[in-house]
């Protein structure tokens, strides 16, 4: 084993900001790594990669990525990304943000972005709670889970993200856990090959705020939970993707279809408005 100072990922990291702020065992670093590897493999011009995030632990990912990165307000990464993409269509625009940011405070935006089939890729890191603020219940918290604001257990049903994204119109929907980093990487590459609204959910441990309140004493236990409970099934009906506190986690690619994208439509509109006699 050789001791070194730099990792091959450092080329795309703001290495002067490492170590990052995330807890030991937090899955966000795994997602960050998978993202960088996907960009490397895709061979797209890194100059044209833009990453937008909202607020939360996941929202800090762009701050460590050495691309054009935008850390916006809570819930608003998606509309910001839409503006960015429209203003400069040659950009590859990614949104990487958390479950609460994208589906609670930002819920309205993600559904409409999928409906429009806007040409962006959204990676939602789902850790089942609001980690940065110390572990409060969120829209993906499983029923009965303990959080600081559900001290008696969560009484609300959770969103099944692949299902809501599929029904909102996303052309690519997949879900993985952080124990499947290769799948995350492949999925990002697949999403890049689709010019429409693609969505990847990554289930990720939050050992400090969520795991330890829910019978997973550390991140390792959460990862082992994924190891035993994860089922991979491509083409599964997203309806089956509900996640319970202790049940199976269905992963795989749920949707992979082709539809006219938003930028296609914008182009057609501009052409139509400039046709003679319009």
């Amino acid at each position: 084993m050789h001791e070194v100072e730099e990792s091959p990922l450092d080329a795309y990291l703001r290495a002067d900001r490492i170590p990052h702020i995330w807890c030991s065992g937090c899955g966000l670093g795994i997602v960050t790594g998978a993202f960088i590897r996907a960009i490397q493999k895709s061979k797209i011009d890194p100059k044209l990669v833009s990453v937008v995030a909202g607020i939360g632990c996941t929202g800090r990912i762009p701050g460590y990525l050495n691309f054009d990165t935008f850390h916006t307000t809570h819930g608003r990464a998606i509309p910001f990304a839409i503006g960015l993409k429209i203003a400069k269509p040659e950009l590859h625009v990614f949104v990487i943000s958390g479950d609460g940011d994208l589906f609670a405070i930002g819920g309205n935006h993600i559904f409409h972005a999928a409906r429009r089939n806007v040409n962006i890729t959204v990676i939602c890191v789902n850790n089942f709670n609001y980690g940065m603020t110390g572990g409060q219940v969120g829209p993906t918290t499983p029923e009965d889970a303990r959080t600081t604001t559900t001290p008696y257990g969560n009484i609300e049903p959770a969103f099944n993200l692949p299902y809501v994204m599929a029904s909102s119109g996303a052309v690519y929907v997949a879900r993985w856990t952080t124990l499947q980093p290769r799948k995350i990487l492949d999925s990002i590459l697949e999403a890049l090959q689709k010019d429409g609204f693609s969505f990847i959910e990554v289930i990720s441990p939050c050992p400090t705020a969520y795991g330890r309140r829910n019978a997973q004493k550390d991140a390792m236990e959460t990862m082992k939970f994924y190891q035993y409970k994860t089922k991979v099934k491509h083409g599964a009906d997203p309806k089956e993707g509900d996640i319970s506190l202790t049940g199976e986690i269905l992963t795989g690619k749920f949707v992979d279809i082709q539809k006219t994208t938003y930028m296609d439509r914008v182009k057609m509109l501009v052409e139509k408005a400039n046709k003679k006699g319009a």
Partner: peptide, 22 residues
């Protein structure tokens, strides 16, 4: 012209577009 889903989205998209150079 994009008719966004609300005013929050509108202003957020405006900022994104500005960084895209529009």
């Amino acid at each position: 012209y994009v008719q966004m889903e609300d005013e929050i989205a509108s202003i957020a998209a405006v900022l994104g577009a500005a960084w895209g150079g529009a």
